[in-house]
Deep mutational scan, measured.
Amino acid sequence: MIVFVRFNSSHGFPVEVDSDTSIFQLKEVVAKRQGVPADQLRVIFAGKELRNDWTVQNCDLDQQSIVHIVQRPWRKGQEMNATGGDDPRNAAGGCEREPQSLTRVDLSSSVLPGDSVGLAVILHTDSRKDSPPAGSPAGRSIYNSFYVYCKGPCQRVQPGKLRVQCSTCRQATLTLTQGPSCWDDVLIPNRMSGECQSPHCPGTSAEFFFKCGAHPTSDKETSVALHLIATNSRNITCITCTDVRSPVLVFQCNSRHVICLDCFHLYCVTRLNDRQFVHDPQLGYSLPCVAGCPNSLIKELHHFRILGEEQYNRYQQYGAEECVLQMGGVLCPRPGCGAGLLPEPDQRKVTCEGGNGLGCGFAFCRECKEAYHEGECSAVFEASGTTTQAYRVDERAAEQARWEAASKETIKKTTKPCPRCHVPVEKNGGCMHMKCPQPQCRLEWCWNCGCEWNRVCMGDHWFDV
């Protein structure tokens, strides 16, 4: 396979590697080409510095992935760790964990309700045991953590790749202090920090972006993250068709209702045909949960890209028209025109101005929308079919299609509260000796007794199943 190397943020060049090629071997190839010592090179990928003893497969490097290699003399205490030698983080029983690669970060837990604080980093599902597709590297999971809308060759929703760059020099040479644990960490600028490894760059702020994971991409090709779309790892039924499908869209209502993408497309087109989208002054033209839940309008309007190009163009047109109407304007009634106009409040005669090729020149009556006339309008008909009709959803289907309910059931079956801080902690095999993952707590306690870890627990039921 081919990976592209950008040395000291210059133009990239291809390097041929195998899945079992080590990072140090990659350094040696680059060092020979650039005429520099291999031990002064640092390989940066997806916000993480890659260790010498890791392989291309370990690092989730795919065909035509772009890695950054910078030349920086080692500072005291760094060289041993980078070589894969006596790194205290690798000691058996050590409590410190390697910062998780962005290629394996899962933010789907952050669609849980606000009262489930902490689960994004504490609760991990076991539903990723799908067998890898044919042709994928051994052991590589097909679980997708992110979804994007690819405006490039795909023109559809695709699995996405999370990447990070330095907000100062805009190069992907920043190593994160810690990985993101929720969508806010990724979507809110300057929320996460790190250290830029580019020479002479003092940058410390992280800037995240997404790429389409279905095809090789260049540095400049980015895609918009659709953070309401998630892999259906909890096997929730769709609120409309009641099938279990994946991926799904999880509405931001209190129940976190789930809808499959085909039904979401149908829901949007139906509402669009009836012009029953909601115009929100802050958000724009949007839709609420299909069950009509309060405070559930979709905030990231790129989710409506699921409509496809033709329907999305209609959505944008109707949204612009609705904006004009909300501002007190009118639409030209001549067939084939429909231009938005903003006449004076007491102006009865409205002319669709033909300047700049935008208007048709038609003069019409503001009251009856017919060709302009003197005197009273002959008839004014009330528009028919403008009443909002509820999208029919079966109550039982709505009850079963809740992301929140599956989460709470998982928590109930696989977790116990920490005796000190009461945060839910998952036990997935292993011994009875637990350690609270909350940095402010870190209590060592017994899963069996529910009390602080002691010699009695150690001698009596340390390794009970």
Rank of each mutant, 00 (worst) to 15 (best):
V3W: 02
V3H: 03
R6I: 03
F7I: 03
N8Q: 03
H11E: 05
G12I: 04
V17S: 01
V17P: 01
D18R: 07
D18L: 08
S19L: 08
S19P: 12
D20M: 08
I23T: 01
V29H: 14
K32E: 11
K32G: 07
R33S: 07
R33V: 04
Q34S: 11
Q34V: 15
G35W: 02
G35Q: 07
D39K: 05
V43Y: 00
I44W: 06
F45P: 00
F45D: 01
A46S: 09
G47I: 00
E49H: 02
L50I: 02
N52R: 01
D62I: 09
D62T: 14
D62F: 08
S65H: 04
V67L: 10
V67S: 00
R72L: 15
W74M: 12
W74R: 12
R75A: 10
R75C: 09
Q78F: 14
M80D: 14
N81T: 14
G84K: 11
G85M: 12
G85S: 12
P88L: 13
R89F: 13
R89Y: 13
A91F: 11
A92N: 13
A92H: 13
R97I: 13
P99Y: 09
V105Y: 13
D106N: 12
D106P: 11
L107N: 15
L107R: 14
S110C: 09
V111S: 12
L112F: 11
G118P: 14
A120E: 15
S131F: 10
S131C: 11
P132N: 11
P133Q: 13
S136E: 14
S136L: 12
G139R: 11
G139P: 12
G139V: 11
S141G: 12
I142C: 11
I142M: 12
N144L: 03
C150K: 02
V157M: 12
V157L: 15
Q158H: 05
Q158P: 00
Q158K: 09
L162M: 10
L162G: 02
Q165C: 09
T168G: 06
T168D: 10
A172E: 15
L174K: 01
L174T: 06
G179W: 04
S181F: 04
W183M: 03
L187P: 01
I188R: 08
P189C: 05
M192R: 05
C196Q: 00
Q197H: 11
S198R: 08
H200A: 13
C201S: 00
C201Y: 01
T204E: 09
S205M: 13
S205D: 09
A206N: 00
F208V: 06
F208M: 04
F210T: 03
F210V: 05
G213M: 07
A214S: 09
H215P: 02
P216R: 06
D219Q: 08
D219E: 11
K220F: 09
E221Y: 08
V224P: 13
A230N: 11
T231F: 08
S233A: 10
I236D: 02
C238W: 01
I239V: 10
I239T: 06
T242H: 15
T242R: 11
R245A: 11
V248M: 04
L249Y: 03
V250G: 02
D262Y: 04
D262Q: 04
F264I: 01
L266W: 05
C268R: 00
C268T: 06
V269D: 03
V269C: 05
R271H: 14
N273I: 04
N273R: 03
D274Q: 04
R275I: 00
Q276M: 12
V278G: 04
H279M: 09
D280R: 07
L283I: 15
L283Q: 09
S286G: 00
S286F: 00
L287I: 09
C289Y: 02
V290W: 04
P294T: 12
N295Q: 08
S296L: 01
L297I: 09
I298W: 01
L301F: 08
H303P: 01
F304W: 02
R305D: 05
Y315T: 12
Q317A: 14
Q317Y: 06
E322T: 05
V324W: 04
L325C: 04
Q326K: 14
M327S: 11
G329C: 03
V330M: 11
V330F: 06
C337K: 03
G338C: 07
G338K: 04
G338N: 09
A339N: 14
A339M: 15
G340D: 04
G340Y: 05
L341R: 07
P343A: 09
P343L: 09
P345Q: 11
Q347H: 06
G355V: 11
N356H: 09
G357Y: 12
L358S: 15
L358C: 14
G361P: 02
F364Q: 03
F364H: 05
C365G: 03
R366V: 11
K369Q: 09
E370V: 05
Y372D: 07
E374N: 06
G375S: 08
F381E: 06
Y391N: 07
Y391F: 11
V393M: 08
E399F: 10
R402I: 10
R402Q: 10
W403P: 02
E404N: 12
E404I: 13
A405C: 12
A406F: 11
K408L: 12
E409N: 11
E409T: 09
K412N: 13
C418D: 01
C421R: 00
H422K: 06
P424T: 13
N428I: 14
G430N: 15
C431G: 10
C436E: 01
C436D: 01
P437L: 07
Q438G: 04
L443S: 06
W445G: 02
C446E: 00
N448K: 06
C449F: 01
C451F: 15
N454R: 13
N454A: 06
V456Y: 15
M458Q: 15
F463Q: 01
V465D: 15
